[in-house]
């Protein structure tokens, strides 16, 4: 098998545990996990905060007097001023910071969502194929994943982003390509056990082609773990996006993202602190809450901490 060192085992042990756990109880894995998640106060609170941030980012702009790219010539580099409607101050170009933070959060969330979908798509197909065909195919495919894990992936993304211009779509896809590896491992582990189940046997006996079996019978049964793992991927992607944006490789002016805002805010943090504090608070609370949700989900699924 791929991991001579059993690295795979560490990751897929989680997936296999779900299998053995699920069997005797008769209750669906996802329901069970959800029930336990609801009892986890930190995770529930985090869900509310994330919900609030989403509303803040997508509805907020409609409630503000200033648009994110509108320049107020009378207020350049100004601290928060409620009378003028600049609730979080303005930047060096006289643009309203709160509007920019909202727009930046929006961008970060969209990137995270699209990139997660890309990574789920690649990871699920790759993992399901490796797991379903097994044997040599599996060994080669997972060895490849093993090695890919070790590559300086971010360098590739930087190359991609730089070469093809700062096209947001490419940014999404590039980051998505970065995050599919773990998903592939989880899915492979699940597929290995699903393919032994009766309904797959039945489909095989009925003469269904491998692709049909993978798409019709295996992928739908992966939903629970995939959704959970995707949740764990989102903060990683937000972090990666803000990282690229910070390096100046992200979205382009006048659009912005949380990473871009922080990269503009940090050099002037001493004199114009509101330019750093706002986006930093939003980014950190978003990441913190998503991490708590991810932890909550994992604990809800993990038998050993109960």
């Amino acid at each position: 098998m791929a991991g001579v060192t059993g690295k795979d085992a560490v990751l897929t042990a989680y997936a296999q545990k779900l299998e053995t756990l699920d069997a005797p109880k008769g209750r669906s894995l996802t329901q069970d996990a959800m029930r336990r998640l609801v009892r986890n106060k930190a995770a529930v609170l985090s869900l509310f905060v994330v919900g609030f941030i989403v509303v803040f980012a997508f509805v907020g702009p409609y409630l503000l007097p200033w648009a994110y790219d509108k320049i107020d010539w009378s207020a350049i580099r100004k601290p928060p001023n409620f009378e003028a409607g600049h609730y979080a101050g303005t930047d060096q170009n006289g643009r309203d910071m709160l509007a920019r933070i909202m727009q930046g959060t929006q961008m970060s969330l969209i990137v995270a969502l699209v990139a997660t979908m890309v990574s789920v798509f690649i990871g699920v197909i790759y993992g399901a194929v490796a797991g379903y065909f097994g044997g040599k195919v599996d060994a080669v495919m997972m060895r490849f994943v093993d090695i890919m894990y070790a590559l300086p992936y971010i360098l590739f993304v930087i190359i991609l982003v730089v070469i093809f211009g700062r096209n947001p779509v490419l940014l999404f896809v590039g980051i998505g390509c970065l995050e599919w590896l773990t998903m592939a491992r989880i899915v492979r582990g699940q597929t290995l056990s699903i393919k032994e189940r009766e309904f797959v046997e039945a489909a095989k006996a009925g003469g269904a082609k491998p692709w049909t079996i993978i798409i019709r019978h295996i992928v739908p049964n992966l939903t629970g773990p995939v959704v959970i793992y995707a949740t764990l991927t989102i903060p990683e992607i937000i972090l990666t996006e803000s990282f690229l944006s910070y390096l100046g490789l992200g979205v382009q002016e006048p659009q912005t993202s949380l990473g871009t805002l922080i990269s503009f805010g940090s050099p002037v943090a001493e004199t114009l602190p509101w330019m750093l504090i706002g986006p930093a608070v939003v980014l950190v609370s978003l990441l913190l809450c998503l991490t708590y949700i991810g932890d909550g989900l994992r604990d809800a699924l993990d038998p050993k901490d109960r």
Partner: peptide, 22 residues
Amino acid sequence: VMVGLVVPNFLMASILQLVFGV
């Protein structure tokens, strides 16, 4: 550990720079 995990390194860099450097 949570702080180390969720504060991105570029932000942490700016904060430490400001606090301990300036």
